[in-house]
Design a protein around this nucleic acid. Structure first.
Lengths: 235, 235
DNA sequence: CGAGTATTCAACTATCTACTTGAATACGGC
DNA sequence: GCCGTATTCAAGTAGATAGTTGAATACTCG
């Protein structure tokens, strides 16, 4: 069974290697974490390295791999270099990876529970439920992601309340309205913890089932930092 | 910057490693080819090994990796073992990978042209265009994939005409109706070649923009082999 | 211009991966 | 039960990959 014979086979191999190169760049857990973070909006290198708990040098190298593969782009602003996903197709790919894992990876539930804790006691709401009630005013939406992500873009009308600030805010939050917390996506801990804390203090609280990227992708209203044009440096 | 410290970080690492394991299994061009084939329907090992031009042993090992990751399932029928995708989420993931590659991988156009040839002269039709005209009878739809794939499932009303058979069929095909050829997906050569051959012989011919998996995923009418239940062996 | 900070580069190591080869196992038909 | 075919297993090798460390580059601010 000889390989490398006809140019047709060779060309097919190369084409599918190119498809595979896209998957390959997502085949490291650390790069997956990076994509999950960048799905929230652009971030500088040192910020990302802290989030994924890796050295700056290592984080930088992961980012270059993502750059070379075309999944992210970078722009310089003064001394900092901001990375961001190169398009919504990348967000959709990341969601597709999570979907397959959720459906077909045997031990995923176990790993998710080990990271997120028991979710059975938490009330959840879908995008549409939140969107429909957000106008009526009987709902308070809080964004519990790191502030940088809130600044890069958030659900229209949401307030930034990080977990550290949450304790201080307990006096100011309304007792008579439902508080909906959201964060990065279906496997993000922040919202879970916020809802647990709020429930413990007697508030009515729920978690948005998914996160900001899915809300934005669905075309629901957001408030986003306008990307400064002309500074981009594509892959 | 110490790693492996809090159990929270450890659990997050493991969760994202699990997501990454899904991408990892698609990070080989040969496994990507396998998924592209299995998206058409179930196939036995030796069949797949011929398609991807690899030894049976190597193909088997790739299939086990896909199996372990949960992307495919297998069932035994006598002496043969048939592999198939474990769900539609996997098809969607494969499509998402191709989309990202098409949009963001720099040299993809070049590789695609090198494999498929110049497509600028080929007429293409979308799913909906074909579906709307398929009933009116002024259209002949031919399936130019290997016959095994046609047998596993095809567009309702399509006829199987492999490239080898095409020359013989030239007398029987109608001169007054548009002939639409389709195959595996947007990067499949068979339909391109069929349309070129037909055009050269004076037929009106067009290529369906995408392939059978996308048609099926869109919920359009298909004729598929009913999956024998009770014989499945999940991941 | 010089100091300070953010990021990238380069060299190195331990581990993993794809593919090969040859043998082992599992089933169907006689 | 034995033979032929389909598939898997096991061992080996060349090449790739993630992470470390320390130095180099690129920009800002005084």
């Amino acid at each position: 069974m000889s390989r490398h014979e006809t140019s047709g086979h060779e060309a097919k191999r190369e084409l599918f290697d190119a498809f595979a190169s896209v998957a390959k760049v997502l085949s490291s857990g650390r790069r997956a974490e990076i994509v999950d973070i960048l799905a929230q909006g652009e971030r500088p290198v040192d910020d990302i390295s802290r989030e994924i708990d890796q050295t700056i040098a290592n984080t930088s190298q992961h980012l270059q791999q993502l750059l070379r593969a075309g999944l992210v782009k970078s722009r310089r602003d003064g001394t900092r270099i901001y990375y961001s996903l190169s398009g919504t197709a990348v967000s959709r790919l990341w969601a597709a990876v999570r979907d397959v894992a959720a459906e077909h990876v045997a031990k995923l539930d176990e790993l998710a529970t080990s990271y997120l804790g028991d979710r059975s006691a938490l009330t959840t709401m879908t995008r549409t439920e939140v969107y429909e009630r957000i106008g009526s005013g009987d709902l308070v939406v809080i964004d519990v992601r790191p502030e940088a992500e809130f600044r890069a873009g958030h659900i229209a009308g949401a307030t930034s309340v990080t977990l550290k600030e949450l304790e201080k805010w307990l006096d100011e939050l309304p007792n008579d309205r439902l508080i909906v917390a959201y964060c990065r996506g279906p496997y993000c801990v922040f919202a879970d913890n916020a809802v647990r804390t709020l429930s413990r203090h007697g508030f009515k609280a729920a978690r948005l089932e998914e996160g900001y990227p899915e809300w934005k992708e669905a075309g629901l209203p957001v408030e986003a930092k306008t990307d400064l044009p002309g500074h981009d440096r594509a892959s």
